[in-house]
Amino acid sequence: MTFISNLINGISLGSVYAIIALGYTMVYGIAKMLNFAHGDVIMVGAYMAFCAMSYLSLPPIAAILLAMAVCTVLGIVIEALAYKPLRKASSLAVLITAIGVSYLLQNIALLIWGSAPKSFNSVVGFDSISLFDGRLIITSETVVTVIACIVIMLGLTLFTKKTKIGKGMRAVSEDKDAAELMGINVNVTISVTFAIGSALAAIAGVLLCSAYPTLMPTTGSMPGIKAFTAAVFGGIGSIPGAMLGGILLGLIEIFSKAYISTALSDAIVFAVLIVVLLVRPTGILGKKIAEKV
């Protein structure tokens, strides 16, 4: 029974990683950049929901929507101010800028909310599900997180396959110049990508803090790094890859915490990443790149 309980916890944590990883992987696929500030957008989203619920006494749904709206705008603004001017610069310059934005967000949060952790009230209203005479308890957060993850995954897949903007996104991710010559506005496409990724980050932030209710300015950084790992693990640029990588990473983390060592669980997670990249450098579902010679 503990095994099943761990499995469920792993899938739940993995779902959060997966939602965050989608943001990394979409931005990478389309703008070919690693947005290391993505993790901190999660933190901003969580703070927004926290403020909306604690200070404005808004219902959870309204708080989530507000957090998503703020993060969407934040994502678009970050892209426009920090990354867009560097569109033609080397990827290293963009990477360093992203790290800079990450610290900027953390320090702004520190100024506004202070370093003391805030206690986040779960957004989920209903009770936990108790099975087998209480031997297996599935928390309501778990249920909501997993459902949210599945819905987001399906929605995003449909969006990229069926809508005009989604097709444009796939076209830009394959060949930016050719897409432009097809009349696709690449700048708008990149902005939309950041907007979607950041809105997802807000959801992830709320879900994460509902399950692990400590909120401080650095809350987003570790899940951010792990979700990035998950994206690379699954094959960066691939939406199903981000999903798979996220879930696997969550499982590995929870199982190593349960059966090996709590202290070493992060080390094990990253060790697995290194091994996977040695065997499959493009990740589990990553595209094989055949260079023409």
Partner: peptide, 12 residues
């Protein structure tokens, strides 16, 4: 866009 279907290329 070689990973997309033929018809999706035209639809882009």
């Amino acid at each position: 866009f070689s990973n997309m279907s033929v018809i999706d290329n035209v639809r882009v």
